[in-house]
């Protein structure tokens, strides 16, 4: 058993240390909000926070995540209150199919914690997730709204 600290709780997962964190979260911890899209850190659907930084969990091993603070989409809301990014996503009706949006939201939440009022240029550089439905227009709009919230 390997102990991971996920969303403020210790979770024991029975996996080999070289298992990608993504699959330990989805299959062993049952946290399916983090999505598999490519497995090679291209699409960002699996983005989680490790010690506050946005990382692509398909390309981080469980071994490397041990002892670090992991936050998934399920842990973004605090005390039953949605994170301002989640709220902005709802207010601006951002998701279409929604499959990439967990990763998108996690990437945006990390951006805002680093740059509370990002410029369009900051957003361009930081948000590199793939969305095949093409929600980028609403994503940009909602990021600015969340920054002001």
């Amino acid at each position: 058993m390997t102990a991971l600290f996920v969303n403020g709780a210790k979770i024991d997962v029975d996996v080999e240390p070289d298992t990608p964190l993504l699959w330990a979260l989805r299959e062993n911890a049952g946290l399916t909000g983090t999505k598999y899209g490519c497995g090679i850190a291209q699409c960002g659907a699996c983005t989680v926070h490790i010690d506050g930084q946005a990382v692509r969990s398909c390309s981080v091993t469980v071994g490397d995540a041990v002892g670090k603070k992991i936050t998934t989409i399920e842990g973004l809301a605090q005390n039953g209150v949605l994170h301002r990014v989640q709220q902005a996503w709802i207010d601006h009706d951002v998701p279409q199919c929604g499959y990439c949006q967990s990763g998108m939201i996690m990437a945006v939440a990390a951006l805002l914690s680093e740059k509370p009022n990002p410029s369009d240029h900051d957003i361009d550089n930081a948000i590199t997730n793939i969305c095949r439905c093409g929600t980028f227009q609403q994503v940009r709009e909602a990021i600015h709204a969340a920054a002001k919230a």
């Binding site: 399916t32 909000g33 989409i73 709802i90 949006q101």
Partner: peptide, 21 residues
């Protein structure tokens, strides 16, 4: 009008086929 299926797409609760258990 706002979509009916948005909220769970922002919290990770929406169950897609890949999430079925």
């Amino acid at each position: 009008l706002l979509r009916l299926d948005t909220a769970d797409k922002t919290t990770g609760k929406m169950i897609y086929g890949a999430d079925v258990k």
